[in-house]
Amino acid sequence: MIEATRARQQSAPVPNGDVRWLRTGLWIALLLLSTTLFIYGIATVLHVHAQLARSVRTVGRVVAIEPSSDGETNVCVFAFEVDGTTRTFRNGWGSNPSACRIGEPVEIAYVPEAPDTYVRLAFFETHTRKILFAILPGLCGALFALGGLFGGWLLRKRHPHLYPDAPA
């Protein structure tokens, strides 16, 4: 009787066993991917910290503004000099209008023992991109995966009066 009432009360399509396992597998895959992305983001931030800790600062200049690969935006080209050798590099991101002016000074940190290891000394370059494109998506993906895996358990535990059985 109770079972019949419950079935009548909630006629939502209930996933069968195979679909449930497939769903669990997808959530686990998303969790693994997201965790990997998150750890990668943290690792790149730690890497740049380690790099900055043994770097010295110099001042370079914007020497050119070039169209990006998609042709929609412009990227800045920077140049700086170490031991008489000029090194140039492009910004990793573009903007329209351009975010820099030719001749504008920029701070650059490079490792004296390995001058080819350098980074523009700007929070956007050293942290923001890693946070926005690796750490944050990884964190949100992991949250969704955890929600998919344990959301039902959490709801049953916190609100047993609403979820007497597993929520869909």
Binding site: L143, G147, G148, G151, L154, L155
Partner: peptide
Amino acid sequence: LPDIHVYTWPACFLCI
């Protein structure tokens, strides 16, 4: 009846 992601969305927006 809210689904299993009822807390996930605000938690994600908190992270963002």
